[in-house]
Write a protein that binds this DNA or RNA. Structure first.
Lengths: 220, 220
DNA sequence: AATAATTTTTAGATTTACCTAAAAATATAA
DNA sequence: TTATATTTTTAGGTAAATCTAAAAATTATT
């Protein structure tokens, strides 16, 4: 059984590994809000326990054991987020920090019953897939809104940024999960995007458009 | 903000203080499953932080600050137990360990919304009162079943032992919260008690009878 | 390829919560 | 009231996760 801290390292390595297979010490340090020297220490420990493969100066990769452990934490995190939003009426921008604590509660029975209580949800309030109890989940391959062309249509199905500020902003613009959108224009000047949503025309910055995920349903 | 461990100490001191005002080092050590020397260390720390009053060799008492912190943890523990039983279909003998972890999640919003979601319950699955968000709760002064006399009647409203073994035993005997009972006999030989419950006659040991709490509704 | 910049690791400390063993204080019994 | 037993504290140490500062390895630049 891993400690609270070990679990956080595993989770962060897992997420970083979604981008680059070999995860660097500095990247982990930044995410963990700690110093590279501390990361090196922990990496050695995780390697000793068989959670990661580690070659000095070459970064780490998760072993199968490490990946499973990480997916288990991600599963818990996302299920708790669904609970907070669906049952306790939290907003999607309020759940992250609390779920960050809840994900470390160790009880298989608890998480399986919670899953059932929530109706075996497939995704969390931010559109991220929830692994089932065997760690399996659909690899969601969504398009970033920024990559769409004029006249493309689609449904908002996720976000790639979970900060409260970003999510509140989307909320205010009405850009929530499930909404239909269509690209009406792309501004040459700053790359901002004009979109049509619920009959209204709105303008969103490149930065925002980068972090909205769309499941495309073809062209107009 | 207190650490996980500090919270456990406060909770245990609080419970021990229900019996004797001055809580002894050894008693805390036993409950915390640790050594008296470690307790002395922690007591000093809690005293420094203003959670307890401490005189060397004289044990500790909680300050108001300490008491409030402890009640807050008890509130969380009991609300989570209600959640586990009412919403996730846990049995009353399965909830203690998980609630022991959940009680340390730090979020006032979470606990207030959970309270509301559960319908502001007044007591937990073992009959223990749940403090409200201001720390207030009814002082339940129940009679132990063992103290009842022949022909006394009452309702099972609590237990003073939360071990899984004990609770499972009660379950099997049908001795659950809300059940009406009447004392039909007390055995001279071993002090065991004959009771009438749901039309049936059953015999329970002194040890069991000591830990069942009854709200008495007068004599027959 | 040599130099500079960056990244990573090592070495040695710190903090928290725990430990053992021994000393000191308090409570109990002869 | 002295001796014995119990309780509590002190002293000194350990393991986990962190830190700073300096050294080593890798990567990028001229």
């Amino acid at each position: 059984m891993q400690s609270f801290t070990e679990e956080n390292y595993l989770k962060i390595i897992y997420h970083l590994a979604e981008k680059t297979n070999n995860v660097q010490t500095n990247a982990i340090a930044e995410q963990m809000q700690t110093k590279p020297a501390s990361v090196t220490d922990m990496i050695k420990k995780l390697a000793d326990k068989g959670f990661v493969d580690y070659i000095k100066y070459q970064g780490v990769t998760l072993t199968d054991k490490g990946k499973n452990a990480a997916i288990d934490i991600v599963r818990k995190h996302r299920l708790w987020e669904v609970f907070l939003v669906d049952k306790l009426n939290f907003k999607w921008d309020e759940v992250h920090d609390v779920a960050e604590e809840l994900e470390h509660i160790k009880s298989t029975a608890l998480i399986e019953r919670l899953d059932e209580f929530l109706g075996f949800p497939k995704s969390d309030p931010h559109g991220d897939p929830i692994p089932d109890k065997n760690g399996r989940f659909a690899k969601t391959q969504f398009t970033k809104l920024i990559d769409l062309k004029i006249a493309d249509q689609g449904t908002i199905t996720g976000v790639s940024q979970h900060s409260s500020a970003f999510l509140k902003h989307l909320e205010k613009l009405g850009l929530t999960l499930g909404k239909q959108i269509e690209i009406s224009d792309v501004t040459d000047f700053d790359g901002s995007v004009e979109i049509l949503i619920a009959g209204k025309q709105i303008n969103i910055s490149r930065e925002v458009a980068k972090h909205i995920l769309i499941s495309s349903n073809g062209k107009h």
